[in-house]
Write a protein that binds this DNA or RNA. Structure first.
Lengths: 351, 351
DNA sequence: ATCAGCGATGTATGCGCAATCATTACCGCC
DNA sequence: GGCGGTAATGATTGCGCATACATCGCTGAT
């Protein structure tokens, strides 16, 4: 059942008439002043007499003049552009942080140049170079592992940089995030404290998720958990992926014994997939198999059973990143180069 | 249980040394050629002798030169920037389309200037103006309802524009989307065809969702459905919202009779919330109450029961929008101003 | 009366590049 | 052997604005 109306549209718009270029010069002439005065009227109206200001504003309204920020940036060496590189904008984890980050900066007059870089370092380097050519006033990068060339370019350009979603002792410049191994260990500690004796970790393929998984597995074993902790998965996080990974675990005998078992996931979406698969198989959660997520997305509290997960404050992260950059742009040395925003284990019904 | 390590960081980085400005002039001097030759080497290497090219490339590598795209844009009147305005980047509906749109354009050397506009028209107008000041080569807008000022600015600027996610007979320039009333009616027709006698529509507050809801309600009644069709909701789409709206409906007696009843949602997320609430109340889906979603997100097929929904091809939408703009930028009049990408009703278990 | 000081404006310059036009050397051709 | 043609390069200009500096008229203090 598909609709695809043909919709015959009259070709109203031919090639557009070449817009007459309106500049400050044009506006100034119309208002009887010079270009500089128009510039001043826009950047600091208090420097222009009220009558002149009025005439200029009328001329702007009459012509529909919109200042050319490219020329402005070239002359002033301030682009009012902030560049942002994230692995994926369809992932709520990044888009949520970005939304706050941009809102914070837009309020200060900055605009956002955005690129997705996937999870590839060379790709990222090329994107960084492309962004640098726009002379952004600052740049946001995701993660702390970059190609050497990326570091060199950034250092050479002298642009304020903030790396987010991770922390490191050797930031390029600024850094806002939390420790992924710590988070993995916190999940393991929680699982052991609740008495789960066997565990599995299902994960997406991204590097930070894998580090959480590795730390989880190591700590769970150290803390007296039984047997090796299987780590499964390397696809993008999706509900279907969570279901499939869980199905594979169960089919392989995971959770079949009387032992209390827990499936830890690298994201709430994967965890949700696990919940669905377990429900479909009639396996009680957390009675027979428990489930832990990561991220504390909006849906975590709305699922049934509600999802025990790790909360990372995306808003705080985005806001801190924006503030750190603004401080840096302002010329001040920020009080801290590395800001650990931490995380919190949220106990709910699923584990 | 919260971790927030103090992490004392040595203040390694003081104010950065002011980067010595490297320009084509600098590079040229080092390579023993003029600025123009460097420019040519970058834009069309075939115009430069192989030996010269080598020397220039070495100089570029040695200096870490990155061309200034602001100056380039000013001189050439081509910014290689595409501006995109979406209501929300955290909504997969828009971010999914955007991902394809940007990928398509990035492959052609364009970069994306992104802003969220919420659902406010005046806000949008201000953002459009800010974007126009960067002299983008084209612009993407969401929806077809804009402030008069927005239309005027855009027309005046002569920038190629594509409006997405909706269609209209009076596009600003180009338009790629589908008919929301048609989609609402298609949902109603399907529901009636399946024999549901009573219906409710739960919705987010955005204008397109409301138009789908209105069309659904009208058609459902016309097609012999019983009683008025309640339309509920005006919050952002969320799982919790879906649960709450569904709970309110059930508490009000909806679905309590022997009549076959269906809850139609303005998005898959709301529908998922409905599924969860119904499951939590032990109400059989679709036996007692059926559920229909909208969007066919990845999770729709992974839920249990799987979700009957309306598929809109986000990739196709983003790709068509990008292609239409590229054609326009190339100076050609596109064969169609309005492209209806249609939609498809996907029949699954929930209705 | 005189001059420093201030408000309001203008002139001149250059940001870094691309586009246009000019120049040079060298090639083959009749 | 002179000429048109081409490849490789350079000189010049200006995109539209912000910045630095200059100018002008006026006020108030001395």
């Amino acid at each position: 059942m598909t609709r695809r109306p043909p919709l015959p549209i009259p070709p109203r718009t031919e090639a557009r008439p070449p817009a007459r270029r309106i500049t400050m010069e044009t506006v100034g002439r119309m208002a009887g002043v010079s270009q500089v005065t128009v510039s001043r009227a826009l950047s600091d109206p208090s420097k222009v007499s009220p009558e002149t200001l009025t005439r200029i504003q009328e001329a702007i309204a009459a012509t529909g003049f919109v200042p050319n920020a490219l020329a402005g940036a070239l002359a002033s060496k301030k682009s009012m552009l902030i560049s942002a590189l994230v692995p994926s904008i369809t992932n709520i984890v990044y888009s949520g942080m970005l939304a706050t980050f941009s809102a914070e900066l837009r309020a200060r007059g900055y605009q956002i140049l955005l690129s997705e870089t996937g999870f590839d370092r060379e790709d990222e380097a090329a994107t960084v170079e492309a962004h640098l050519s726009r002379r952004p006033d600052a740049m946001l990068l995701t993660g702390v592992h970059h190609a050497d060339r990326t570091r060199r370019m950034l250092l050479g350009a002298g642009v304020p940089v903030v790396e987010v979603w991770d922390i490191t002792d050797t930031p390029i410049d600024l850094c806002v995030g939390f420790s992924h191994p710590e988070a993995g260990r916190a999940m393991a500690d929680y699982a052991r404290a609740r008495g789960y004796r066997r565990a599995a970790f299902i994960t997406a393929g991204d590097e930070r998720a894998l580090r959480r998984g590795a730390a989880f597995a190591e700590r769970f074993a150290q803390a007296g958990g039984e047997g090796p902790v299987p780590i499964r998965g390397d696809a993008p996080a999706s509900l279907a992926g969570g279901r499939a990974l869980t199905a594979a675990l169960i089919d392989a005998g995971f959770g079949s014994e009387a032992d209390k078992a827990v499936i830890a996931a690298s994201s709430d979406v994967l965890a949700q997939g696990a919940l669905i698969e377990l429900a479909a198989r009639g396996i009680a959660v957390p009675g027979r198999v428990a489930v832990m997520g990561f991220g504390d997305q909006e849906m975590a509290a709305a699922l049934s059973p509600t999802l025990t997960t790790v909360r990372v404050n995306r808003d705080a992260l985005g806001r801190a990143a924006a503030q750190a950059l603004l401080t840096r742009i302002g010329g001040a040395a920020p009080d801290r180069q590395v800001i650990d925003v931490g995380f919190a284990l949220v106990e709910r019904e699923s584990a």
